[in-house]
Amino acid sequence: MTLKTALATAALVLTSLPALAQTATQPGASGAMTTQQVKTATVQFITLEPAAAVTSRILGTKVTNAQNESVGDIADLVIVDGKTVSAVILGVGGFLGIGERYVAVSPDSVTLVRDGDGWKASVNATKDELSKAPVFDYKKKS
């Protein structure tokens, strides 16, 4: 199972959560504003396969390359429009979190396979390529 498949499953779960009720203010017959309840989304339950990856179990997963070198770990996921995983944030470089920097890669770039009770992730990139990749700066993102 690729990371993209697992993340798409996780995103599907997120999108199936019920929407919070919102209120809209409308003018009443006398022109005074009244509050009216807007419909909430209907809950849709799904059944996941036991092999599905959930983010709580893949965050922190060590990432290796084709030479079986450790090149980093999965630090985060970027979800756009509330449902699509658009990037996997890898923590690369550094030692014990000191000097670590973050790079964003496409979910298609990461292969995720079950490894016993956990997960194994790999990318087709060298340490040098990852060290030269553009930095993902959390401070600039909202």
Rank of each mutant, 00 (worst) to 15 (best):
T61H: 02
K62N: 09
K62Y: 05
V63T: 06
V63W: 02
V63R: 02
T64R: 13
T64E: 03
T64M: 11
T64W: 04
N65F: 11
N65I: 10
A66L: 15
A66Y: 06
A66C: 07
Q67G: 07
N68V: 10
E69D: 15
E69T: 08
E69L: 13
S70Y: 08
G72M: 04
D73H: 15
I74H: 00
I74G: 01
I74A: 06
I74N: 02
A75Y: 03
A75W: 00
A75S: 12
A75F: 01
D76G: 07
D76F: 02
D76L: 09
V78S: 08
V78F: 03
I79N: 01
G82E: 08
G82P: 10
G82R: 11
G82C: 08
K83Y: 06
K83F: 09
T84W: 08
T84K: 14
S86E: 14
S86A: 15
S86F: 10
A87W: 01
A87M: 10
V88M: 13
V88Q: 06
V88D: 04
I89R: 03
G91L: 01
G91K: 14
G93N: 11
G93T: 03
G94V: 02
G94P: 09
F95V: 04
F95C: 00
F95T: 12
L96T: 09
L96M: 14
L96Y: 09
G97L: 06
G97M: 06
I98T: 11
G99W: 11
G99I: 07
E100K: 15
Y102M: 08
Y102D: 08
V103N: 11
V103A: 11
V103P: 12
A104H: 00
V105R: 07
D108Y: 08
D108A: 15
D108K: 14
S109N: 10
S109V: 06
S109R: 11
V110W: 00
T111F: 10
T111L: 14
L112S: 06
V113Y: 01
R114K: 14
R114G: 12
R114N: 08
R114S: 12
D115H: 04
D117F: 02
G118F: 00
W119K: 12
W119P: 13
W119F: 15
K120A: 14
K120P: 02
K120W: 00
A121H: 01
A121N: 03
N124S: 13
N124M: 12
A125V: 04
A125H: 05
T126D: 01
K127W: 01
K127Y: 00
K127M: 09
D128G: 09
D128I: 13
D128N: 11
D128Q: 14
D128E: 14
E129M: 12
E129F: 06
S131N: 13
K132Q: 15
K132C: 07
A133K: 12
P134L: 07
P134W: 04
P134V: 07
P134G: 05
V135Y: 03
D137T: 13
D137Q: 13
